[in-house]
Design a protein around this nucleic acid. Structure first.
Lengths: 334, 334
DNA sequence: AGGCTGGCCGTGAACGTTCACGGGTGGCTG
DNA sequence: CAGCCACCCGTGAACGTTCACGGCCAGCCT
């Protein structure tokens, strides 16, 4: 059962992968017999089986998925493209997609666009490996670049985006829910730590509006030139009693900063994040946050992928767009 | 460019996927012309291209990866089998493997064994999708169940295990390093929170030995019947000034418990984990831990996979087993 | 007018595997 | 001894795509 070194140099001397006929010739049998030996099928004597396996071993033979898949159609493959697997947000969503897709009989391969090489190249590589594409924050141009009729589904569909398919997040209800919650907690000065430098980003602005309707003072603190630290300084100097970070990982950094300064959470200052990461339940204090349920997003997204793939749905159709609401997850930090 | 509903019902009425000849017939051209139209190749008039694409659209045609892969060999696929993607440890290792394998031209599909269905079935499914298997804590019997000559590599090779391939962790140096570190911090009573109930597990025992050589008092606290809470109670009641949790996720729970009791870390009690999770750097206080470098593990594991696959290496060979040392990662909690 | 060129398109073959079927033994039974 | 059966093995075909090549036709030049 030991294999030799030296990759598949076959009888004709060409250095290609050994095929089933190479093994058959070497063992002095037919292809079918090789198949029987390899797949533990009946109708073969143990002597020839041994001989065939030995030949396969020497040639380092391994059946081709393509040849095999051609005759007995295998499951389709879903290509998942996320930005940065180093950011905890993406592994969580990837896991949800993998779980959902696997149970529905799909194969999943994951790639990251902001990772190594050129994003377009990575996407191209992924496209030729998969039967459908599911991606996060794909550029508009992706629709054109995708090869003939491959389903392209977006995990985070922008507001406009006609003719597209995927999942659209709706955070409106959760924003007011978070505002109400902060109000009930007695917060009077809530500051939204924005990720943008100059003008407030869209979500920060809407968040301020929602909070402003409930709380006495609500403001947006843009990302300072000195980085998150001075941004936090500015917020605290203003007398904030509640902070909403731009996302959950940012909120964790805020928690660390506050701890270093001896500020207690939630007693002195309440902190909330945005993303709904499961990770937030592991830390102390547990992070209050708003976010979509990853499992729901994955379920809807994979359903759209599957629908497009089987022809049950078609891009541009209304049912090809699913709206998933943000939910408020109250834990300890606010 | 809109696709119609109704999955690939072809001219002969059978409900199978449309093939290239179905499209060719419908458009009144040859296969090759369809290929030219689909792949944006030259040598075709724009009029016929339109006609072909329309026909493909109506039939919901999509080229088969298998047929295509057969002629122009695609990249191999690595099947990664981990226990539970809900445990932060496994996504981290999965990400490392995905990154490494992708840069080396491998395709990666991930499945979890403890997830949904029968582990053997899951493994079987994965095997027929992949060209090689990389798994965590695979049973010994896996070697037999694996089909003919598919490379099987283990991410966590047990001590004995002859004839196997994969990565073996060596925690001996790190154990003494952690002991020394705790000793230098002035700890006098270190308790190892074990994951086993009765007799101390192997690692807990070795850890106690290493620590005992440096610190005055070192003991192992088995997992109590009442769960981690009473286990922690017992440790604290004994006057411990340092705790080593069984793994990093467990350490995070310990941190939460300590915070709820008003115990300061690391001032009152020092806490260390085991696993080396990147996650530990996000929390506050940042978690001191010992663990392997995931990127290194992934690099070695994928190299073994690739070596076995190409025939450069063979199972049982010495070079097919890589030893990766645990390292001490000193952060804030100890 | 003949030949050459370039654009467009079609035909056979190849990729590697499995399925359906058929043929050939040897042994056993009636 | 004929007949049958079980066991073992081989041959053609099929899966869906791309590659290499060759044919046809219109247009142009000499």
């Amino acid at each position: 059962m030991t294999s030799r070194g030296g990759a598949g140099r076959t009888s004709d001397g060409v250095d290609r992968r050994a095929t089933i006929v190479d093994v058959a010739e070497r063992a002095g049998v037919s292809r079918q017999t090789v198949t029987r030996a390899m797949n533990d099928m009946p109708g073969i004597s143990s002597a020839t089986r041994e001989r065939v396996l030995a030949a396969a071993d020497e040639l380092n033979y391994r059946p081709s998925r393509f040849g095999r898949g051609l005759v007995s159609q295998g499951p389709p493959t879903l290509g998942l493209l996320v930005n940065d697997l180093g950011n905890a947000f993406f592994p969580e969503i990837a896991v949800a997609v993998i779980r959902e897709a696997t149970t529905r009989g799909w194969n999943v391969v994951v790639s990251e666009s902001d990772g190594g090489g050129d994003p377009a190249t990575v996407a191209g590589e992924l496209m030729r490996r998969a039967d459908a594409l599911l991606g996060y924050s794909l550029p508009e141009a992706a629709d054109e670049a995708v090869p003939a009729r491959m389903p392209l589904v977006r995990l985070d569909l922008p507001e406009g985006g006609s003719g597209a398919a995927g999942v659209r997040f709706d955070d409106s209800a959760a924003l007011t829910a978070l505002a109400d919650h902060l109000g009930r907690q007695g917060c009077q000065d809530v500051v939204v730590l924005d990720t943008a430098r100059g003008e407030p980003s869209g979500r920060a602005q809407r968040l301020r509006t929602a909070i402003g309707a409930v709380v006495e003072r609500a403001r947006v603190e843009p990302l300072a030139d000195g980085g998150p630290t001075v941004q936090l300084d500015a917020a605290l100097a203003g007398g904030a009693d509640a902070l909403v970070a731009w996302n959950d990982v940012g909120a964790l950094q805020v928690l660390k900063q506050l701890r270093a300064r001896g500020v207690r959470v939630p007693e002195d200052v309440r902190v909330a994040g945005v993303d709904g990461l499961a990770l937030g339940a592991l830390v102390s204090p547990e992070l209050t946050t708003i976010g979509v349920d990853q499992a729901t997003v994955a379920r809807e997204a994979v359903d759209v992928v599957d629908g497009l793939y089987t022809g049950r749905l078609s891009a541009g159709e209304e049912r090809a767009v699913r709206t998933v609401p943000y939910r408020l997850i109250v834990r300890e930090s606010a």
